[in-house]
Amino acid sequence: MRIMHLGVIAALLSTPIWAADTEIEITPLPEGSVNSEDGLAAWDRIYQVTSHPRCSNCHVGASNVPMWSGPSYGGKPRPHGMNVNAGESRIGAEYVLCSTCHAYREVTGTRLPHAAPQVAADWRLAPVEAEWFGKSSDYICAQLRDPARNGDRSYLDVAAHLEHDVILHWAWDPGAKREPAPFSLQEHVNDILAWGAAGMPCATD
């Protein structure tokens, strides 16, 4: 019995968390076609996204505790209610699976205000090395261009990741009167492409 359930968790961990439901165009710009100033401007917009609570609440560090912050919650940032801890598995396997409440949802339906957000994927935290919550622009900039911390991705891979991952898509369409991430997903992808074509500049360079 127990073995079966561990198997369930293994299956969850290996479930691909992407599905194409939003049309995104990825049109790479020629390398060097964007100057460093425009590249840094693109980065500033990217940082507005990565530091936005809609994204950063789940990009938390080794505490493994997602945050509840931003306009939907009011007041000051606080840890996810109910003493939630996603564990090192980042999907809650050690305690309560995220998907206990953030259920898999493909059928489009009304997204209820204040209910657990749901997508057609198993809800989870971003990897621990992708910590954004409370981090500075310089920190995240260095992190995003560091293959050791960005999942061994080129900027084009990052753009492709944005195309695939439906949890990220949710950030721009959270529904139920939640404030979405800034700009649009397409604009954000375009900024990644521009930042990459400019050589992924950071203000500290």
Partner: peptide
Amino acid sequence: DGQAVRSCQVAIGD
């Protein structure tokens, strides 16, 4: 399938 789930959050179609 053995996992605790809030049944108010699972659409029957899913």
